[in-house]
Design a protein around this nucleic acid. Sequence first.
DNA 1: CTGAAAGCGCTAACAC
DNA 2: GTGTTAGCGCTTTCAG
Lengths: 347, 347
Amino acid sequence: MMEADAGANMGGSIMVTMKDIAKRARVSVTTVSHVLNGSRYVSVELKERVERTIEELNYQPNLLGRGLRKGQSHSVALVVSDITNPFFPQIAKGVEDHLKKHGYSLILYNTNEDPREEKEGLSHLRARRIDGFIIAPTKTGHQDLVLFVEDKIPLVVIDRRVEGLGVDQVYSDNLNGTVRAVRYLAGLGHQRIGFVGGLSGITSTDDRLEGYKQAIVGLGLSVNPCFVVPSDSRVMQSGYDAACRLIQQDVTAIFCVNSVTMMGVMRCLKEKGLACPEHISVVGFDDPQWALAFTPSLTVVAHSPYQMGYRAVNLLLERLAHASRKFQRVILPTTLKVRESTGQPLK
Amino acid sequence: MMEADAGANMGGSIMVTMKDIAKRARVSVTTVSHVLNGSRYVSVELKERVERTIEELNYQPNLLGRGLRKGQSHSVALVVSDITNPFFPQIAKGVEDHLKKHGYSLILYNTNEDPREEKEGLSHLRARRIDGFIIAPTKTGHQDLVLFVEDKIPLVVIDRRVEGLGVDQVYSDNLNGTVRAVRYLAGLGHQRIGFVGGLSGITSTDDRLEGYKQAIVGLGLSVNPCFVVPSDSRVMQSGYDAACRLIQQDVTAIFCVNSVTMMGVMRCLKEKGLACPEHISVVGFDDPQWALAFTPSLTVVAHSPYQMGYRAVNLLLERLAHASRKFQRVILPTTLKVRESTGQPLK
DNA sequence: CTGAAAGCGCTAACAC
DNA sequence: GTGTTAGCGCTTTCAG
């Protein structure tokens, strides 16, 4: 036949199963199942006996078995580029807090912004029969998403926009947030405003660039290509390098696409001995805790990653409940937080 | 009988199973299984046919089925207090990167430093048949750990020390790291050194306090209780409050138990108009990216959360392979990074 | 009100 | 070399 008892000492410990409970309580497994799930009436007597036995043997239902039978794993995957990026832990927290309330577990997967890793991960997670996905897709990753959408896998796109694809999504109003910040800088008298951008193809940073451009044009100025320098917004050094280049262009203000680049920019100013905001004003996107502790404290466009995670879970749960519900798009507002890193330009 | 086809459209899509492959390739499921796992010889002809079919139908093995059968889920849980705490994402990254290579998924669980949540989570995750745990236990949480250890659930304790319990563990050399930092401050001429501590009962912060005390005593000074103020090291405001109190004690230097409290301390100095390091020197524990961007850049005791996660996975995998291996304890070294936030005290 | 039994998708002993 | 089949732990129909 088969080997003695596969899985009997799963995890090293003796695992008690429904069968054990049934035998000891002198009832059928059916009954055990029903008291466990409250799925049909069971006489008080049997019910008590079963519950006592469960207690005695410290029984834990095997979710793998249940999952196999019911066709779901009660887990949700959060697929992001890198949890180390200060923005994502907030999202993760929002997701986990909310998921937990509904009995779901959170699986975390980092793509490192690499479409190949993303593809691999998605396929592996799919094999796990993850019930749903919350994902910040990599730039060229949309093909994989299409597959998911076609297969009607519950999926919500987070942080980044996706067009022409039927999916739920939630992201910040990156464009308007940036417009407001740039207008504010202009209002202070800045005309030469630099932009430290991100990797192109990622809508969150692309939209911020677009906002920058719109604001500049709206102000009656024209976009100077030398003022726009892309960077790898995941690495501080890249923001540093970008700042060096912008300084040479004699900008009086710098808008940073996120908090990571902002760190690099601040460090560059510091090293070059340029005072902020006296010599150069700086605005960032994201509002990390340290923005306030900084000297000068940092003016930023704040948004709500925790909320974003929370809302994403909402969308996902709704989709899980009604597969054919119409797709929703949630756009979260941003707030400009004026602090010390911005001021009037030198005359 | 039973309902039409539970799980057949799991996740909303039509799921193809091994049986489908077998039928279409005109072989047995056994053969399919064996080509999938390379677990026994299969003639090239059949092998090719099966592989082609798998390709055609875009088959994905159901890991739930496999897991149930083999008695393992191929997933590992990382249980931390709060992923939002800047220290943990680094650990999570180290864990995930390494786990991924071995085909494991990472389940993330936040306890919010609450023993009840920890207990709940652990029990739920156990029901999931998680293969192993990597956990930074809450202060009073040890009772639950004991249960795990008794049941021989593969488990490694991270970031925090546990005594008198057979478990693998990996943590930083908190004591010596702090000793070195305090000695360094003393070497600069500081005699009145404040300590912003953490919640008691958590060994990582307790050990830092112990290091502080040992260093002070070793210097021939005595520990002034007024110089030691505990804080909730998860919240910046708490560091801020602690700093306010220390300032009133006329300390000339402050050691912060972690980067979160350090933020609070820096902010307090800033608001009180106290220059750092001219008026007060500050040292922290942890080396977040922004420590360098800061003005002044921050002197810190750096340790290696990524490494910690990585090593934890190593220990766990070894334990998974050899359940009765002897328990290991890995203590990671720390480095004092002297930067601008420390200097000689005012005369 | 309760139980027997089928079967979720997979692996692996056993047979040939 | 390959196939038959039992069974992992659970839910749920069907039959009392």
